[in-house]
Computed example of a mutant assay.
Amino acid sequence: MPSQPPDSPAPEAPTSTTPTEPPSSSPSTSTSAPTTPAFPRIVENDPRRTGFDPRTAWWVNYFKILAGGVTPEGAFHYREQRYRENEARDCARCDKFRDWAFAYSPTVRFLRERVADLNGTLDKDNVLCRRCPARLTEDGQVHRASGGFSPGHGILICANEVRNRNHLEDTLAHEMVHAWDHLRWKVDWVGDKDLKHAACTEIRAAMLSGECRWTREAWTRGNWTLTQQFQDCVRRRAVQSVLARPRCKDDVQAVKVVNQVWDSCFTDTRPFDEVYR
């Protein structure tokens, strides 16, 4: 029997879903208000179908997974249970990485100073590590995130998705770019007017955070393309984040709006002089 509870490996999560405060609900007679697309139904675990029984000891389920007695759906639910049980451990580890980044990461320290220049504050009181539940929907898609930014609350780092200190550094830098953009331009996060603001800040965050540097794309995600790798990564991750916005209809609209702002936003490296990571 293993002495330390192992966790099944998880695919890399999108860096940000950028959660925002819901708009206030008020009566309206308008018939042209944007509608939120119907979200596929969330799939709940059924031990008879998946082979994973949460009432059984973790090591029994673990060896059932190794033996092929648990479906991929069951492995997802097993992983989520392990995250719940290890929440305190994961959050403590995330807090340690966050404090290191504030103290020693050149990128995080620079962004923190630039946010302060705009009368904003980012510290351990509003950069929080928490467990972020993932969702499995009936279309077979797993929806998970590494973090998010909310203008009214601060930055959330998903402790259960943090793989190592470098991953947290990239995730935190991504969200700090969002914070700087919001203080500088008052971004329309939800997309009530249009999605161009969201597309632009997602392009900039993916470009400036370091999450699309060649080593991470190649070794972590298995994308070994030598030409246009950086641009393709930034575009792909921006599209994924725009698609998660409540006002985005589908992937066609997400791609379209990213293309509309690409030329101006991909060349905008503020507050940096150039792309360093």
Score class of each variant (00 low, 15 high):
K64D: 15
S3N: 06
R131L: 03
L208G: 08
T36L: 08
N160K: 01
Q228L: 06
V142D: 11
I203N: 06
S3V: 06
V255T: 10
P2G: 13
T137K: 06
R247D: 14
H153T: 15
C200M: 11
R82M: 09
K256R: 06
A88G: 05
S32P: 00
Q141C: 10
K186A: 11
R112M: 09
V257I: 13
R237L: 05
L156H: 00
R247M: 14
R165V: 06
P106C: 10
V177G: 02
K124D: 15
T15P: 02
F266Y: 04
P151W: 03
T17D: 10
G222D: 03
D263T: 09
Y62L: 10
A206I: 01
V127C: 00
P271K: 09
Y276W: 07
C94H: 01
E169D: 10
D192T: 13
T15S: 13
D250V: 06
R41W: 01
A199P: 03
L183D: 10
R109K: 13
H178P: 04
P106S: 13
K196F: 07
D123P: 08
T56D: 14
A145F: 00
L226V: 14
V257S: 04
L118C: 12
R236T: 05
D263N: 08
V70D: 13
R114D: 06
E87C: 04
G69Q: 13
T267Y: 02
K96P: 01
P72A: 09
T36V: 13
N86T: 14
P246H: 01
S105M: 05
T267S: 11
G152Y: 01
H167V: 01
T171K: 00
P106L: 04
S241A: 08
R48A: 10
F102W: 06
L136K: 12
A57K: 15
A244C: 06
K124G: 15
I157H: 00
R277K: 07
W219E: 11
T227W: 07
V43D: 06
D170Q: 15
I203A: 10
H143F: 11
H167E: 07
P47A: 15
A218K: 11
D232Y: 03
K96N: 09
F272R: 05
A116E: 15
E217T: 09
E12K: 02
N119D: 14
K186Q: 09
P106N: 12
P37Q: 08
D95F: 00
H77M: 05
T225W: 06
R84C: 05
V127R: 00
A10S: 15
R130N: 02
S24G: 14
R79S: 06
A75K: 10
E175K: 07
V70E: 14
S16C: 05
